[in-house]
Simulated scan of single mutants.
Amino acid sequence: MAAEPAVDRLDAVRTEFDVAAMLNLSGLSGRVDRVCELGAGTHECAECMIAALGVDVYEVYGTPGARLGQWHGLPQVVMRPPYARSLVDTESGSVDLVHAQQLFVRRPFVTVVGYLEEMIRVARPGGTVAFGAITEYCIDDVVLRRWIDGDSTDCHVLPRAWTIDMLDRRGLTLLGSYVQLITTGRSELLVFRKRQVRSVR
């Protein structure tokens, strides 16, 4: 039992690092109106994001987990019920940053693509779309051996080049990426900007 606070602190430090790296790649700073997070199970990421960006509204799609009371200290948070691959409760073009940290690591390909299309829809022009996924960059013989020995049948690989190309065709520009440590090995968090729509004269 004594080790639990140390584990919690390690997770908190890792979350702070991940949020700082994501915001650095996105170029977001100062106050933003609205952030949307997919797959949130704990409050740590929301807490870091609200502190860094002074967020007015922080939408959360996901299960709040056992520590429900800790969300009550974040009045900016609006809980949304999780859907299969939809963000139906969020208006189109309304979000400055929409992100999913580790949700896609354990979701099938078609579900991930459906979520990506919804993330594009809700992001405002100039807004940021960010998500973590297991790409080819995250796999080596050591990771594969760990998956096989541990019977990790719920780890899903997202093809990196195809995904970047697909999102580019839908108006997103890759800003950069970085590697995250996860329980099954590594994932890559990719950060995109939604291009401004040019007016036709």
Rank of each mutant, 00 (worst) to 15 (best):
M1I: 06
P5Y: 01
D8S: 11
R9I: 00
D11H: 00
V13E: 13
V13T: 06
R14W: 08
T15P: 00
D18N: 06
V19C: 02
L23I: 04
N24G: 13
L25A: 10
S26G: 08
V32R: 09
R34P: 00
R34E: 05
V35I: 15
V35A: 14
V35S: 10
C36P: 14
G39F: 05
G41T: 05
G41H: 12
T42E: 08
H43I: 10
E44W: 14
E44Y: 10
V55P: 12
V55S: 10
V55R: 09
V57L: 03
Y61C: 08
T63F: 07
Q76R: 11
Q76K: 12
V78Y: 03
V78G: 05
R80W: 07
P81F: 01
R85V: 01
E91Q: 04
E91P: 02
V95A: 00
D96K: 13
L97K: 00
L97M: 01
A100Y: 14
F104R: 06
F104I: 08
R107E: 14
F109N: 11
V112K: 13
G114V: 10
Y115F: 15
L116N: 07
I120E: 02
R121G: 07
G126T: 12
V129P: 06
V129C: 14
F131H: 05
A133P: 03
Y137L: 14
R145N: 01
G150D: 03
D154Y: 15
H156F: 15
L158F: 06
P159L: 08
P159F: 12
R160V: 06
W162A: 07
W162V: 06
T163A: 14
T163V: 08
M166V: 15
D168N: 10
G171F: 03
V179G: 06
V179H: 09
Q180D: 01
T183M: 12
F192T: 12
F192A: 13
R193K: 10
R195K: 02
Q196I: 14
